[in-house]
Design a protein around this nucleic acid. Sequence first.
DNA 1: TATGAATGAGATTTCATTCAT
DNA 2: AATGAATGAAATCTCATTCAT
Lengths: 197, 197, 197, 197
Amino acid sequence: MKNLTKKEALLQAAKELFGEYGFAETTFKKISDRAGVALGLLTHHYGNKEKLFFAAGMDVLENFISVLQQATADAEDGRTGVLSFCRSYLAFSIDPDTHWLVLVRCSPYSDMKTSEDRDIMLRKFEEVHHLLEVQLQRGMDDGSIVPLCPASTAQVITGLMVGANRTRVLTPYTFGSSQDFYTETLAFVDRAISARN
Amino acid sequence: MKNLTKKEALLQAAKELFGEYGFAETTFKKISDRAGVALGLLTHHYGNKEKLFFAAGMDVLENFISVLQQATADAEDGRTGVLSFCRSYLAFSIDPDTHWLVLVRCSPYSDMKTSEDRDIMLRKFEEVHHLLEVQLQRGMDDGSIVPLCPASTAQVITGLMVGANRTRVLTPYTFGSSQDFYTETLAFVDRAISARN
Amino acid sequence: MKNLTKKEALLQAAKELFGEYGFAETTFKKISDRAGVALGLLTHHYGNKEKLFFAAGMDVLENFISVLQQATADAEDGRTGVLSFCRSYLAFSIDPDTHWLVLVRCSPYSDMKTSEDRDIMLRKFEEVHHLLEVQLQRGMDDGSIVPLCPASTAQVITGLMVGANRTRVLTPYTFGSSQDFYTETLAFVDRAISARN
Amino acid sequence: MKNLTKKEALLQAAKELFGEYGFAETTFKKISDRAGVALGLLTHHYGNKEKLFFAAGMDVLENFISVLQQATADAEDGRTGVLSFCRSYLAFSIDPDTHWLVLVRCSPYSDMKTSEDRDIMLRKFEEVHHLLEVQLQRGMDDGSIVPLCPASTAQVITGLMVGANRTRVLTPYTFGSSQDFYTETLAFVDRAISARN
DNA sequence: TATGAATGAGATTTCATTCAT
DNA sequence: AATGAATGAAATCTCATTCAT
């Protein structure tokens, strides 16, 4: 765990702190202290605070996307693929090792001001939508999903993931175990898309 | 429009600026300038920046709740009530006069740090969940909605509203008219809850 | 001397410090310490360091111009007016109460980067050229000055003032008393312009 | 043009950047980037920023002096020598290949703080004065120049060069072609020193 | 209630210089 | 000679909040 370069240690600390305290409440000092690194190294390696913020988010996003790719690749039909996508999405978000919260805070669904860095993330995030859209189309083709518009339904389901996830990680509203809440969410999606026999 | 007390002018300016720029980027100076009012009046009337932020959000939230109350009260059955709730939610969010964005930024689904003010909003927001839950229960009673857990389903649907709304007001992802996107969202909800005959 | 507002005290300290140490070596801390005033007052009253720098210079420039106006107004003919202009210019520059050095450092003849503030000073400085030009024209009209182009000669003479003054206040090159050096300078100008009989 | 050692490339870049942006606005990074050379070489070869600044200036000054030597050596009498000195001074300053601006910024007539490096330049600059003084003395001896004090007149004329040059390269005040302005300047000098018959 | 000058802690960013490789 | 990561002091500027008027 100590075989990190100083640049990597900085990114690691950034993921922890931005996730925990958000952008505004996280200072250069906190980051460099936690990373055990000189203050000036932050701008030396990452240019400025915002770039580091998005670098941290992008790192999580890339891991996230590869998990989703795996999950959808293994599915036997479109409906299963969609549900597997959703299950992995939610599972990733509550895994303490993923630093999910950084991504919540700099994703396109957060309220950061637009910036060049944000635009890059915006485009990267479209890969997530695409993965879902592919499964929806596949489900319509194989008859496991009712007829619907794949593009906009992908947005609706992503929206549901975003909202359910925020309910879970930002609010105190999920009574019962979060497992239950996520199970309900999956059931909701299933009812909305699956072709009944 | 000019018959505002200075205190009201401050709240008005706060709704505009917090909505447009967020909490951190909005300063006392900007608010008092926009309101055309002395800087010191801000603490005088509202105590501090955070209290003003939540006062602005609460003002929007109260309007929001009364719109939702109206919408659900008029419904003929549970399913219609739920759909009416959702339609009003989304319509409110794109009405330029409601200052919806402030609420987005200080709602429980945003990533503000916890504080006394936030807790108040948290509790107020439960009225929204309650309105929806009532319609879900009603729909199960009158047979227009499939059997499900009203409490957690209310959370799931609220989550969907939150996510769909963020997609619409924060991201550039809604191709087609936003009307279309919101229509798809309502159809999605309907498929997930309505009892088919 | 103590009946200064804090804003005035800041300008006073700025004139002293910018004059003595130049722009780069003068810090907010030094200025506010010398003025006995809070650090933040500097941006509160003057916006930023550069604006304060030019405010200090403009203050000196305005005093300078009114001295030159007086000096030229009293002259009996054009040649005397020009010489009086030069004498006053040089005298002003070695009067310890005028804070001349600030002006040297932000005048158009210094090497500050262009900025909005600098442009204002640039235009103000043209009043100096104009005063001199008027006397040159007058001298040609009354026969005390040889025929020449008043506009460009005004620039040449101003240039000479700038250079002689810099020799005097920035370099160690003026052997003999500076009085002598300035006397030589005036004699030089006189030889270059006066109509001999 | 590419047959520069890294040390020379550094000096070249320094002349360009210090000339264009001044001392404070020029950073090690900009210099090493422009030179295409590692950052650390700067201190390695030149010790520190100030030494590099003056090394750049001294390089220009040495070229300058040899041009002036040539110009005065060729003159047929003292008056012609002085005018040739002035003409060469001004021509050198507008030749784009000489990097004149660096010298403007670190010459004794600029407002750099005193330092060991500056003292060296100060002494070197005296050679310029000396060249001029020699021609003045020669002109008095050969009768082409009116009786005057050579030492202080050399200072006055150098001052005029400094000021005229600054008018030309730092201010926007020279209307007409700069050629015209420099011609006027030479005529002014001539009137002030030449013995009329 | 109303004003805006005053405060100073704190944040980000810059950058000359060092040094291990 | 050459590299560029690393350091941390220092500078500018921001801004919520206080307070005298």
